[in-house]
Amino acid sequence: MSPSPAKPIHLAYLFDPLCGWCYGAAPNLARLRARSDVEMELVPTGLFTGSGARSMTRDFADYAWDNDRRIFRLTGQVFSAAYHDQVLGSIGRPFDSGPAILALMAVRRTEPQREFEALSTLQKARYEDGRDTTSLDGVRSILAAQGFKAAAAALDHQPGHIAELAQSAISRGRALMAGVGAQGVPTLLILEDANATRIDTSTLISDLPRLLAIPD
């Protein structure tokens, strides 16, 4: 009798679409997701929504750019001149991840298997192409142009359902963060039954082989 296959490791990735460190973690996150013994779910925390949202100011733009250059040195992830000029340079524009979370929930409702792809699409649009991901018009345009036409339509035709999904997902993310005492994102958790265990997420940036103590 052949042995039963090992139970996959279930991970929850807590993130915010406007978090530069989450973008920096993307390459190692993709490598981790490619493992056959790992299942991962995206859990937005709404870090930059509600009271966490703000308007872009010159001081905040300078602070973000300093962090972005550090992330680039550690990960090689691109923070382009277009991003610097068109995103950080748009003083007064809302810094609010709510629209991007709604876009991801629209993808979850229409093509859930493409949710990680959609997050990558939004991150690249912002950090590489300098596109606006803080307005519904901006994220809808990005989704439609990148082949997420059903999700783009859902933002228009099912706004109530999408908003409910977003609120539920954010509530789950915040509850998970509180449960493990996490203060920010990215945060990576192992979920097993009713228990959540936080992983040293610095490994997502710098040391993938040590992540989960599972050798490549």
Rank of each mutant, 00 (worst) to 15 (best):
residue 2 S to H: 12
residue 7 K to D: 09
residue 11 L to F: 10
residue 13 Y to T: 08
residue 21 W to G: 06
residue 22 C to H: 03
residue 35 R to D: 08
residue 36 S to K: 13
residue 38 V to S: 12
residue 38 V to D: 07
residue 41 E to T: 15
residue 43 V to S: 01
residue 44 P to R: 00
residue 44 P to K: 03
residue 44 P to M: 00
residue 46 G to K: 13
residue 49 T to I: 06
residue 51 S to W: 08
residue 54 R to G: 06
residue 57 T to W: 07
residue 59 D to I: 11
residue 59 D to N: 14
residue 62 D to M: 13
residue 65 W to E: 05
residue 72 F to D: 05
residue 73 R to W: 11
residue 74 L to D: 05
residue 84 H to Y: 12
residue 84 H to S: 11
residue 88 L to G: 09
residue 92 G to Q: 07
residue 95 F to Y: 15
residue 99 P to C: 01
residue 103 A to M: 06
residue 115 E to L: 10
residue 122 L to S: 00
residue 122 L to Q: 06
residue 124 K to V: 12
residue 129 D to G: 04
residue 135 S to F: 08
residue 135 S to P: 10
residue 135 S to H: 09
residue 138 G to W: 02
residue 148 F to T: 00
residue 150 A to C: 00
residue 150 A to S: 12
residue 155 L to S: 08
residue 156 D to Y: 02
residue 164 E to G: 01
residue 164 E to R: 14
residue 168 S to N: 15
residue 171 S to W: 03
residue 177 M to D: 02
residue 187 T to I: 02
residue 187 T to P: 03
residue 188 L to V: 09
residue 189 L to T: 08
residue 196 A to G: 05
residue 200 D to S: 08
residue 201 T to M: 12
residue 207 D to T: 00
residue 212 L to S: 04
residue 212 L to I: 05
residue 214 I to L: 15
residue 215 P to V: 11
